[in-house]
Design a protein around this nucleic acid. Structure first.
Length: 321
DNA sequence: ACCTGCACCTCTATTACATCA
DNA sequence: CGTGATGTAATAGAGGTGCAG
């Protein structure tokens, strides 16, 4: 598979996004390292309790307003904080993320810089974005325009209003996502025009859609690995019983040649986690491309051997540091 | 050839809003 | 009607990549 975004090779990103999450292990980021745990949590769907959500809200607001520990915050508090934020930072006022930019001369197609998270409020972080190419007008434009897509009358007080995409819009986006999970700027602009959304909204939708896809895939992988583990555990028990039977037989009778024909399996099995097939020792079960995700696990052959432990997340290609 | 800064991109985690039961 | 759970749009920030100087 090959796709270019902005003329660049995105194979790397696609591999991360849609490839099996099994491949995520090699990551160095602590954030990414935590992904499997989240995946496990997701496998047994538990959502944040409201208390926790509120606490998280506090923490988030702590970017500007450190939250008192152990205190809860209501939506009213949220709005007070937002209003305060606007008071403290007047440049926040009038920014309505649901409003399309003015469709003036500035090319909505390209919307330079707006495709980056840095282009919206995140630019407050000051991480980058000196107004060079874009002329630095996106933020003003983002709040200045109006479009029929926004009928919520939002915008006051600095609280963010959330747009719900219509079914038709979602359907079109889904169709587009089926064709390609990432968009180049032209595709993004075309979709945005077609759906009467801002390119940034299309981009965010694809971003979230990729995240959902990956989460779902992770859940599937998790289930698959759980089944694999159960199967192996059962197989392990069976083999242990067999060994005990053989030992008992050996105590009762002198060794007979045919008993040795039922020798225990090789000391190691190589298993392909995706197809769950076991290959002969030393030979991967599957084609060469799957070799990266092969898991070689010791299989205890003694009656007191431990239950196999699954070292599951392997094989992400090393990245440039 | 190597380094550096910039622009742009994606990803993950989180927040916050809308809706439903 | 209030409340918690859930879905998802939007934001924040980290880090990768390509390119120009």
């Amino acid at each position: 598979m090959e796709m270019t975004v902005n003329g660049r090779d995105t194979e790397h990103h696609l591999g991360l996004g849609l490839g099996l999450s099994l491949g995520m292990a090699g990551t160095t980021s602590p954030v990414e390292a935590a992904a499997p745990q989240r995946a496990l949590a997701a496998a047994a769907p538990v959502t944040l309790g409201r208390q926790q959500q509120l606490q998280q809200s506090w923490n988030g607001a702590g970017l500007f307003f450190p939250a008192p520990s152990g205190e809860q915050r209501s939506h009213a508090d949220d709005r007070r904080l937002a209003a305060l934020a606007c008071h403290e930072m007047p440049f926040l006022r009038g920014i309505d993320v649901n409003r399309a930019p003015a469709t003036g001369g500035a090319s909505e197609d390209e919307e330079p810089g707006a495709s980056s998270p840095d282009s919206t409020l995140s630019s407050l972080s000051g991480k980058r974005r000196a107004p060079t190419r874009s002329g630095g007008g996106e933020q003003e434009r983002a709040g200045a325009g109006s479009d029929d897509e926004d009928d919520s009358g939002a915008g006051g007080g600095g609280s963010r209003k959330k747009l719900r995409l219509s079914k038709d819009q979602s359907a079109v986006l889904e169709e587009s996502f089926k064709e390609h999970s990432t968009l180049n700027p032209k595709q993004k602009a075309a979709l945005a025009r077609q759906l009467r959304l801002r390119p940034r909204q299309v981009e965010v939708w694809f971003q979230n859609r990729r995240a959902r896809t990956k989460l779902k895939q992770t859940e599937v992988d998790c289930e698959s690995l759980k089944r694999c583990c159960e199967t192996l555990t059962e197989e392990n028990r069976r083999l242990q019983r067999e060994v005990q039977e053989l030992r008992a037989l050996k105590l009762l009778a002198p060794p007979a040649p045919h008993l040795y024909m039922r020798a225990p399996p090789p000391a190691t099995l190589t298993m392909c986690p995706s197809c769950e097939r076991v290959a002969p020792s030393g030979k991967p079960a599957g084609d060469e491309s799957r070799a990266a995700t092969m898991v070689t696990r010791p299989v205890p052959t003694g009656p007191w051997g431990p239950v196999p432990v699954l070292p599951v997340f392997v094989g992400r290609p090393a990245q440039r540091s």
